[in-house]
Amino acid sequence: MAQAAAVANPPAPPRRRRTSATPRRLPYLLIAPAALLMLGFIAYPVLSVFYYSLQNYNPTKPWRNGFAGLGNFTQAFAHDPQFWDTLTFSAKWVVVEVGLQLLFGLALALIVNQTFVGRALGRALVFSPWAVSGVLTSAIWVLLYNSQTGITRYLADAGIGSYGTSWLSDTSTVFPAAVVADLWRGVPFFAILILADLQSVSKDLYEAAEVDGASRLKQFLHITLPHLKDAIVLSTLLRAVWEFNNVDLLYTLTGGGPAGETTTLPLYIANTSVDAHNFGYASALTTVAFVILLFCSVVYLRLSKFGGEAK
């Protein structure tokens, strides 16, 4: 294997061998900066999270620090209703967001994949919220949802909703309000990825289907959808992990409120560690979140038979 290091090297004249003096070590030198950064700032933190999950560790209460065994985990599963509440909300958030983003993203991609006048401009505008940050999205929707001067006032003028409702501070409206705000910037992600994949469908297939008299719905179900399957599986998985982990939007838009109504598990973990300084417990919750993510990802890839079937 070591001899195969520079496998693609042609029989080299002596001069070149001297200039690339260490072909065996060269690949390791090249990946060293990346590997060191990832070891130091991803692998080591992950291991330390696993370590602290078995410890009582709270810098503000040093007299209680020490080995906790599985105490943090039993605390979470047996005695912490907030853990279950936030976990349930996370699941609901991820399923609703990813489902709707996929649905609207797929529809949009199919539309802008057609040939029509103004397509380039239409695409640019439709995709534009893609690069907007979570915090900026929050800022925009705070302006829109504001009860005094927001768009909601004008909706109330038109008979939708009532005056003076602050959509973000009412427990009955905060969930749909946050979902819509996140959809606004999340749909373009799916639309872009699906459009990219749509462009690689062979046009001949549609022509053949047309000759056979297949309706547009049938063409979609039997040609387009099977072709898109792998891209859809992969992008929904990446997006689900991302939506689960991302705290920017909810942190700034609702702060997890009102009354903890929109606190996801990562937000709860951040509060536990940053505000309550309960690092041991936060580490245990983080470990649980890791395991859940990993388990769900594996199950999802298995169930969807990712990459398994011929197109």
Binding site: P45, V49, T286
Partner: peptide, 21 residues
């Protein structure tokens, strides 16, 4: 494999150890 796995590691959950580092 490590590159792919790191996609599942959420930066938000590593705040405390990163802060300590």
């Amino acid at each position: 494999l490590a590159l792919l796995c790191s996609q599942f590691v959420p930066g938000a959950l590593l705040l405390v150890p990163l802060f300590q580092i």
